[in-house]
Design a protein around this nucleic acid. Sequence first.
RNA 1: GGCCCGGUAGUUCAGUUGGUUAGAACGCUAGCCUGUCACGCUAGAGGUCGUGGGUUCGAGCCCCAUUCGGGUCGCCA
Length: 577
Amino acid sequence: MLRTHTCGELRQSHIGSTVSLCGWVDTIRDHGGVIFIDLRDQYGITQVVFHNQAVMEGVGTETVIRAVGTVMPRENEAVNEKLATGSVEVHSCAPEILGPCKNMLPFEIDLSHHTREEIRLKYRYLDLRNEKLHSNILMRSKIISFLRSQMEALGFVDLQTPILTSSSPEGARDYLVPSRVHAGEFYALPQSPQQFKQLLMVAGFDKYYQIAPCFRDEDARGDRSPGEFYQLDFEMAFATQEDIFQIGETVLYNTFKAFTNKKVSPAPFRRISFADSMLHYGTDKPDLRNPLVINDLTDFFATANFPLFKGKAVRGIVANCSGQSRKFFDGAESAAIALGMKGLGYLTYTEGTFKGPIAKFLTPDEQAKLILEENIKSGDTIFFICDSKEIVSSLAGGVRRWLGEELALVDHDSFEFCYIVDFPMYEYNVEERKIDFTHNPFSMPQGGLEALNTLDPLDIFAYQYDIVCNGIELSSGAVRNHSPEIMRKAFEIAGYGEEEIKTKFGAMYTAFQYGAPPHAGMAPGVDRIVMLLCGEETIRDVIAFPLNGSAQDLMMGAPSPVTDSQLRDAHIYVSKI
RNA sequence: GGCCCGGUAGUUCAGUUGGUUAGAACGCUAGCCUGUCACGCUAGAGGUCGUGGGUUCGAGCCCCAUUCGGGUCGCCA
């Protein structure tokens, strides 16, 4: 037996017993006649004491050693309150080296988060020894386990779908895998199990879920891995949008509640229409921790005698800025300019009057109307965002974010969930001068075939929804279009014929002609859930072996060249330059 | 692909108007130390200033090109 106890295990009850500990040397404190080692493993740290400098030969930090010795008490001031094992220590004659360590590490383990990512990723196994990162990965495991147990408890069954599948022509760029057997043909890695899970519904599997790997060849972001990521993918037969919402908010609320002490907005999550979200928060990913709300002042300024805003889209944000310095307002203007605005108009309301250059353009009646409609109180400032209707929302959203942070209105100790609903089914593509699907062609239009036949396509909503938490899109989902007839019509409006459907989604389109149940689902992103719960800013800090921003594995050296013979097998012929 | 920021010791950084031998902290090595727990003290090693060119009497610093990172927009049905 290599070890009798872990490094987090020993307590006063073990005093007097002979134990064997194994682990990494965390720190060495050499006092000449007495040497202290903090021995570390996944479970904790135990102080081991040696009394002979000579036995320390070859033992440096991060060396893996085994120490056999006696558990001794630590008296009074020798007790280390910071360690769970701090009331005892192990007295050992000599360490046994199990895994020597080069005496110059590429970076210090406990300071790895200060080290540039390129080096951390190359020596990822060292970085993963860092306490925070290590605990993130353990937390990820626990969260995934918890998600599974909840899904199972709700009657969902875990089913695997293929990794080698066919390329789907829409959406993100595919990762292609050349076929050896079929020269010139390719598999693709799935961007999501979308079509397979829908086919499982047709096959009569009632409730499906999977912690599904998804592959997309798109560039990275702080909250988006390049290459691959995981989703809690699920789908239900005979489900309405509301059925899915209840599953989603139950599972996410329970999960967040189980893994954080911060406030979590309870189910039912707020339902906000896409249009309202764009208007009042300036984004389809609202951060509801920020209490500020954007209002539409376009109509107000349409009649007011202020030439700069007349005939344009205008938004207003009311915030209490009493006590704010000139520097704050200058900062607000700089932020607005950084967003691409020409400036930032505002009026401050104190002692019954508006102050600010715009005030003189508004009649007393108009001022009174503004105060009433925007519920302006003494000490409030109303900021105006004015631009074309295409971009005014996102500009207002940027100003809202800035004000929320600068005025410290964002509650960083809470998770605020909402559903964004009623996404438009179609949008107008200005460049190609045609109508396009806004999201994906799998969603059921609200109102079904009748809506497609009678309404202006741009007025039709889809049963398409997102879950957003603290400004981060955690999930999207939809009630699927399971009707070949509605599908044909939906594609026709976007300018595609039946042939197009058969080419792109042949298996599913055919399957739907053999008795398809209505079905719906969603797929919350596992990495983002873990990132939020670990309080991390980048998704790489919750993935054991992430790719870097350029989709490379710096540790394994992927992607990499392969041999000519491998290329021949794959029927790939690269011209040598 | 566009834009912004960066690359100086193993790591994180400083480096003045272009001027003698490029510094600090941590880490590493050696020595001293029997109660530390981020131990302490003393000494030491460690640099092609990302790469290539240019300007100059002289370049870490200025100019051009290039490369590698990070962020962001595009992209992400």
